[in-house]
Computed example of a mutant assay.
Amino acid sequence: METASRDRDIATDDVALVPFSTRHLPGAHKLSVDLRWPYRMEDWDFALQVGRGFVLERQGEVIATAAWFPYGPDFATIGMIIVSGAAQGRGYGAKLMDALLDAAGPRVLLLNSTPEGQPLYLRRGFEPVGTIHQHQGLLSRRVEAPSPDVVRPMETTDLGAVLRLDEEATGAPRRLLLERLLDAGEAQVLLRDGAVAGYAVSRVWGRGHVVGPVIAPSAEDARLLIEAALSRLEGCFVRIDTELDTGLSPWFEEIGLPQVSDALIMVRGTMPPRGPARVFALSNQSLN
C-alpha cells in the first residue's frame, strides 16, 4: 500500500464516512492525480472490483479514500489510503483506518506503508516484518526470453495449478484477484518436468506496465519468469515491486529499472503458513 497520510489520531468535524462505490471513482482519481500518484481511472475501478472500502466526503467532494481486499475469511490486505493535501493532519487517516479495521474483523491484515503512515499503524497493532523495493523506469534494453520449454504463455488448463501455487505462496485464497489479473494482462508459467511450478502476470497499470505477481520456487526461477515478461516490454515504462530479501533488486538496477522508493511491510496478527513457492513481485502495493 502506498500511504500519503500525515494524520494525527484525532476525530474531526462533519465530514461523512461512506462506503466506496463507483460514483466515487472520479473523485478518487482526482485525489490521486492531485497527489501525483500514478493511478489511472481504470486502476481505481480494478481495485473496487476486487476489494471494498470507504471514502470521506465533504459536501459531495471526495477528500480521502481507503480500501481493503479480503482473501478468504482469515486474511486481507489494506491499501489505496489517500488523504488530500489540504485535509492532512486532521485525523482523517485514523478515521478511515478504524473503519477498515472494524470491517475486516478478526482477519490477519497486511499493508505496505511509507514513513508518514507508520506511527498510525503501529498504534493500531501493526508490526514491521520486511521492506518492499519499488523499481521502475523506461526499459531501454532488450531482455531475452527464456526457452519456451522453460517458460511459456499460460493456458486455460493451467489455472488450477496457478491458483494452488498462489495460495501456497501467499497463504490465502485469491481466486477473484487472479481471475481479474488474468483478464487484464498476460501471464507466463514456469515449467519443471512438464508441470507448472510458477507464474507471472504483466499488465497495463499506472504510468505503463507492472510485472507482478510473480510466484516461483526460487529467485532464479522468478528471474526467468520476469525475463519472459520483459522480453515483450522493450521501450515501455515498467514497474516491479519486490521484497528486499528476494535479492532481485541488484538485477533490476542492472537492466535499467532503478529503485525509486521503498515501503515498510506491516502486519497485524500472525501471517498464515506459506511456501515453498513464494512471492517475488507484487501485483501492486495495495493488492499485494
Rank of each mutant, 00 (worst) to 15 (best):
G130N: 09
R40C: 12
R36P: 00
V162F: 03
V15H: 13
W251K: 00
L111I: 04
G206D: 06
F252R: 12
A47M: 15
T22E: 12
T270A: 08
R124C: 00
K30E: 14
L109N: 07
S140D: 10
Q134W: 06
D158I: 01
S218H: 10
D262L: 08
A28P: 00
L35I: 08
S286Y: 07
R232N: 06
A86Y: 11
Y71P: 06
S249E: 03
F126S: 00
L224W: 03
S21Q: 14
G212N: 11
N112F: 06
D183R: 15
E168C: 07
T157H: 13
F46K: 01
V143L: 14
N288I: 05
F20M: 12
G275M: 02
T22Y: 10
W68A: 04
C236R: 13
P250D: 02
L120R: 05
L257R: 09
P26Y: 10
L225K: 13
A87W: 11
L138P: 00
H135I: 06
S283L: 04
P106Y: 08
G93Q: 01
A16V: 15
H133F: 10
L48V: 03
P119S: 00
D9S: 11
P276L: 07
G206T: 07
D7F: 00
L48W: 11
L101V: 12
W44N: 03
E116A: 11
E243G: 12
L101D: 07
D149P: 04
A16C: 13
F46R: 00
I215E: 06
V201H: 09
A11K: 12
R164W: 10
R36C: 00
D245T: 11
Y39G: 09
L282A: 08
R207H: 13
S147Q: 12
S140Y: 03
E227Y: 04
S32Q: 12
F69W: 02
L225C: 13
I81V: 15
S140V: 06
Q88I: 02
W37V: 04
